[in-house]
Design a protein around this nucleic acid. Structure first.
Lengths: 228, 228
DNA sequence: GCGATGCTTCGGTTACGATCAAAGTATGAA
DNA sequence: TTCATACTTTGATCGTAACCGAAGCATCGC
């Protein structure tokens, strides 16, 4: 008994509904203040403050002081992956939210997952990249091909820049709504950034969902076709 | 707020120390009775019973009645992966157990992870298989090569048998003690089974650790060399 | 300096859940 | 049948942690 690392601590940290909501909100990638997080957690700022202190002590969060605000973010990508993988697991077990809500469809279509695109559009993009031979899917792993590198160059993404970082270029991330993989890693981030830069899509204020403009939608679907 | 699946429920399930210990013990792959699980959880049978009922209701466990015993196992491999990934995360954050204990070294050397080999030996085996060209590592995924298939045939593992199952052949699983990948999937299971069948190693009664015989140790190290 | 805002700390209440003893149910052995 | 084992259910206790009000700091704008 008592073998291995202590999973009960982080389980308990994630196990509180208010904290889980905060973490889920932070999986959106942007830094949030204590007051904002109190909002998503449905609690007062005092309570939120103690929760945030616990999460920080547990190594899940980091905070950055900026003036009289304190911005909280997930400690690193590993935390984001843990949260998303738990969401995927929970979705598979039917542990869904009680109220689907009106925002749900938008969230399923396209949302941000830490720093890359998820949802129907995220899955579609990866499928298309694989079908066109830009990405090789071997087993459960992903690798960029030479064709993919030159194709990406054409749409303004310099892969050699990305390679210089320590972060893996391609990573598959299980999508909780689609139950299939989408593209994470530095390439996933770069692609989403380029969509936002081009004005094809924009992030929403309070939600993880990503809204495509009519023109951006057209361009995206053209760039990442799916053969019938 | 309140977006996505509910991770707080499973977080809370794993968040209790007694339940976490039970789950960790069941990651050893074998079915355990309620009384045995009460032992690893350090609680009475009554308390264990309520815990087990909760875990079953949450979809993490299944039970099988056999005479007057009730054998509990993890619901499926996804649960095992979740637990191991949380262990890996916890180990990375330094959420280690307070008492390392005397069994720790054996556990780090070789242990069972659901149904395949983990620990130093598990990582070594995968490294060797990759170095010899039996397995291709692309990105974070794994794929068996033709050479690998014939090599495995030589040591008595029929890959075509394994392919018939729905379960993926090769899967990489992050090792919490080594912080590197070892081989999971049906091939990982088949390899460990063959070691046990050959009498190279045996499982221990109360622990997840796997004990190699002197002869088995020699054979294993010869079969999976690491080039300096 | 002043007040306003953002956040944390303190104190006290409350509620939930983990715990076990004791009683109840099911299976097996004699 | 009777007793023993394996487990669950019930009931009651207890501790902890979530929660908020109020007070205490820190920072900004004026």
């Amino acid at each position: 008994m008592k073998e291995g690392p202590d999973i009960a601590q982080i389980g308990a940290l994630i196990g509180d509904p208010a904290r889980a909501n905060m973490l889920a909100a932070l999986t959106g990638g942007r830094a949030l203040t204590a007051t904002e997080l109190a909002g998503v957690g449905g609690i007062t700022v005092q309570t939120a403050s103690t929760h945030l202190a616990k999460l920080e002590a547990g190594g899940l969060l980091t905070q950055r002081k900026q003036g009289r605000h304190r911005y909280f973010t997930l400690a690193d990508e590993a935390v984001a992956r843990l949260i998303e993988s738990m969401m995927g697991f929970a979705a598979g077990r039917g542990h869904l939210r009680h109220q689907p809500g009106p925002k749900e469809p938008a969230l399923r279509k396209a949302r941000i997952c830490y720093d890359h695109l998820a949802g129907d559009y995220g899955v579609r993009m990866l499928d298309s990249l694989i079908a066109s031979g830009s990405i090789d899917a071997v087993g459960d792993g992903l690798a960029l091909t030479e064709k993919g590198e030159s194709d990406l160059q054409c749409i303004g993404i310099d892969v050699s820049d990305l390679r210089s970082s320590r972060r893996p270029l391609c990573r598959s991330c299980l999508d909780w709504s689609e139950r299939r993989a989408h593209l994470a890693g530095s390439l996933g981030k770069a692609l989403l950034s380029s969509f936002l830069d081009k004005g094809w899509a924009r992030r929403t204020a309070e939600s993880r969902s990503i809204l495509f403009s009519p023109e951006g939608d057209r361009q995206f679907l053209k760039l990442f076709p799916v053969d019938a």
